Computed example of a mutant assay.
Amino acid sequence: MRLKGDVLKQIRRKRGLSQTALSEGICTQATISLMEKQNRIPKMNILTAICARLDIPVDKIIENDDVSMTSQFDEISLLIVQKHYDDATERLNKIKVKKLQNDFDKQRYYYLLGVLQVATDQVDEAIFNFELILTQFSTMSANIYWALTTVGMAMAYEKRGNEERALKFLQRAVTLIDEKQLTGGKRQWIIIYRNIADLYLKLKQPNEAIKIANRGINICREDLSMFLLSDYYQVIAKSKVMLEDHQAAIENYEIAKSLLLINDQTENAEALENEIDQLK
């Protein structure tokens, strides 16, 4: 595995960032200097955080036969978002945790395992794995998995029926996001805001759900992405129903339906049409 320091330097300058600005909250300025001048490879969580800040894949600046586990974890994460839990489990089971070479990969592994366990009603196991991340990896640099795991705890406790504890973890996750300079890719931010907004809705906090959903929508707009965009508008629509603002609910459902049709999700769009009809 070889770091392409010259490419890193070019991209950093193109983004208008100094070495100090790129390193802020992630590592030292000297680390960036060593990467650019001596092709020194930092710890994987630092490397991933730097790439996230530059909005580039790791393999953009790494020449290697195995660009950590990033691509595999990203594929598994997408399968979970799409609710293909069996496929996600099969892919995750192929990864041997004892062979993972750095703590960041282990952090991501246990997070995805915990999310899958929540989705498949293995709540106690999920809480165990989330707690493992929050204790064992608490000294790592502030990456988005810190907040994602905290949201995962909220998801687990909501599924267990402990709404008070779920809300506590959810609020803690939002505080982490607002007060810490967490590093993460655009897709991860879109996922975490969708999960938070959805949980606030389940916990009967419609105004908070709308606020968080709008954060996610703004990221989608900035990135010209339609990823989970329909989900956000559905959360807002359901929140408006809870607030008894049926006209606003219909408007947001219509937007969500249009986005589903654009993405050829006809069956899901028809389900939203039924929701709209019930509000008219």
Rank of each mutant, 00 (worst) to 15 (best):
M1R: 11
L8H: 02
I11G: 01
R12K: 06
R15H: 15
G16T: 14
S18R: 14
S18D: 09
E24M: 15
G25E: 04
I26Y: 11
C27A: 00
Q29L: 04
L34C: 14
M35Y: 06
E36G: 00
K37W: 05
P42E: 00
T48Q: 10
A52L: 09
V58L: 11
K60T: 13
K60R: 12
I61H: 03
M69W: 15
F73N: 11
L78I: 07
Q82E: 15
Q82R: 12
H84Y: 14
D86H: 09
D87Q: 08
E90N: 05
E90K: 13
L92S: 09
I95T: 04
D103G: 03
Y110K: 06
G114D: 14
V115C: 11
E125V: 04
I127D: 06
F130H: 05
I133E: 03
M140Q: 08
L148M: 07
L148T: 07
T150N: 06
M155C: 15
A156Y: 06
Y157M: 05
E163L: 08
E164I: 09
A166Y: 02
F169I: 04
T183E: 15
G185L: 12
K186Y: 13
W189H: 02
I196E: 12
A197W: 01
A197P: 10
Q205K: 10
P206W: 00
P206C: 12
K211T: 14
I212W: 01
A213R: 11
N214C: 13
L228E: 05
A237M: 14
K238F: 13
M242G: 07
E244M: 15
Q247V: 05
A248M: 11
S258D: 10
L259P: 08
E267L: 13
E273A: 12
Q278N: 11
Q278W: 02
